[in-house]
Design a protein around this nucleic acid. Structure first.
Lengths: 342, 342
DNA sequence: TTGAAAGCGCTAACAT
DNA sequence: ATGTTAGCGCTTTCAA
């Protein structure tokens, strides 16, 4: 492998000149540039990222801190779409994306990435109450963007939906449709996203004069199977819900399967509303009413913000809220009117 | 940030001793190890990947060369499941996964990754006839594993399904069901995976005494929309097919939507068989008959093979075929009998 | 069992 | 406009 020295020798200049040509410094004569570029070409030179990084202390890469529940991550279309957004801006800006598929704990991963100088900043996916990762981020003072809002005050930028409002809207829709026994099927209950969505759900009930019933709130995991199990529980209780708000479309799919298996017809016997509006929501049978959160844009904004922080070289603590819409289809039993923007 | 020197100073040893302790060299006394480890702990030392990589010439990371059509990649559940498999073994083996979301052309990306020493080896996703990437791989002689078989002889390991056989099986199933006008809806026609699947499809027809009709073979792109468009074309021809084999489940979903829109009922008016057996296949309406290719295992084997090559430090040129099964559900019109293993 | 010293390939003062 | 030099943080001979 040709090094910068080889190129320098061939072009009859010093290594620093080659380095300058590489950086396209204006203080190098065109003539020299030409000569050096010819040598670069001839030796098919390619810079060594290690050597460069060692001195510049920057990597040209951003990291994604994959949560411990990696399966839920990769397999959920939400994340795929989000990553597509991230990848889009990464590609545009010429940086690589590295997945923290290595170490053990989350803190170790973060250290591995940031302190090991493998990436210039990290994208965090979701958070829970008292999240140690966020504490470490604050300590590290490194560029980082969280998807979702932090539960406790923290020194991070984040991009999020107004989940409380979104869940409120969706619940209100169900209430307006005449439902009073409305269930909530969510992910892990200490996840901030879950907390916000239950809160919105409860608020809507209360504002409507309906007493929230804890038995109607079930937490599960973000997989189709999780939705299936959760819905089974919801439909087993004596005074079963006539409508269920699911905090994720995949959960909703699982829920629909469970309902179907138990002989309930959606939406006749049970109304269902999902969250995220993944592509398949439209294709489900019946087509799933869902809160569109603009996953791709969340990804674009996440990466954009992170790259900005990296450029600035410091945490910016900016927050962006991506808006949402309730996309009314058939699973909720309403006559589809298209999209309800809020 | 504490460096190895700081640790050395604090522990009253030389940097090389610290380095040895880090590598857990047996030639260091337990007593010294203890002292050094204490210093490591106290300073919360974390090694700099650049410095280490610069001397060891290895990265502890594997790369995934994202094809130019990045959208099709991220958004297709096939890839998500495959990546989950990759990530699983990467995590197990303690290596990071870097996504080539950077440069422009594919060759540039490969150079960026391999020659830029950002990763120790790469995973390639699919290939086409005369693929320049494979040529570059051969030239670089770097660890690399291709998902799919190369069109032309190449110096790579690969993991694949027997796509020709799989398509043959699926087509045979349709023939046995009484269909004679069978369409094929695939991805880009120069993709090897498409070539193999059409070949299997044609062979089955011929073996059954049915003359293949080129008008019944359409190529599209691997998105739901692609399936929709392709199916529209297939159903528009005068002597329309009564069954269609789709080279991808997402394509099949799009196809079902098109059929539905045109007023055809699946499977009564049109039998559909998909490929990959993504999770949602089971949830579709009607549930999609599909060739299960074991996406997750493909990922596990891909990464496993690559890591093995990296350990050996040289291309191994090994090939693994992951088996497939036809999972019979409702979209093909057969009475579901479960899984047809071959 | 440990230390000293060289060097991985590059960039960035500082000279000229 | 270009060269010289030092050094980024680590590993690894080679010596002791």
């Amino acid at each position: 492998m040709a090094t910068i020295k080889d190129v320098a020798r061939l072009a009859n200049v010093s290594p620093s000149t080659v380095s300058r040509v590489l950086a396209n410094s204006p203080r190098i004569s065109e003539e020299t540039k030409r000569r050096v570029r010819a040598a670069l070409e001839q030796l098919n030179y390619h810079p060594n990222a290690f050597a460069r990084g060692l001195v510049t202390n920057s990597t040209g890469a951003i990291g994604i801190l994959i949560p411990p529940s990696a399966e839920e991550f990769f397999v959920n279309p939400f994340f795929a779409e989000w990553m597509a957004g991230v990848a889009e801006v990464a590609r545009q800006r010429g940086v690589d994306t590295v997945l923290s598929t290595s170490a053990r704990g989350e803190i170790e991963m973060l250290d591995h990435m940031i302190r090991g100088r493998r990436v210039d900043g990290v994208l965090l996916i979701g958070t829970r109450r008292g999240d140690p990762v966020l504490k470490e981020i604050s300590k590290l003072r490194c560029p980082a963007v969280l998807l979702g809002r932090p539960a406790d005050p923290a020194h991070v930028s984040w991009v999020n939906n107004d989940n409380q409002r979104a869940a409120y809207d969706a619940t209100l829709h169900l209430l307006n449709l005449g439902h009073r026994r409305i269930g909530f099927l969510g992910g892990a209950s200490d996840l901030v996203v879950t907390m916000d969505r239950v809160a919105g759900y409860r608020n809507a009930l209360v504002d409507y004069g309906v007493e929230p019933d804890p038995r109607l709130e079930v937490s599960s995991f973000f997989l189709e199977q999780g939705g299936y199990l959760g819905m089974m529980r919801l439909l087993a209780i004596s005074d079963r819900p006539t409508a269920v708000l699911c905090a994720d479309d995949v959960l909703a799919f699982g829920g629909m399967r469970a309902a179907h298996e138990l002989g309930f017809e959606v939406p006749r016997d049970l109304a269902i509303v999902g969250f995220n509006d993944i592509r398949l929501a439209e294709l489900a049978h019946p087509a799933l009413t869902s809160v569109r959160v603009h996953m791709h844009e969340l990804g674009v904004r996440s990466a954009g913000l992170l790259l900005e922080e990296i450029d600035q070289g410091k945490p910016l603590q900016r927050h962006v809220i991506v808006n949402h819409e309730l996309v009314i289809r058939y699973s909720c039993g309403a006559k589809p009117i298209g999209t309800l923007t809020t």
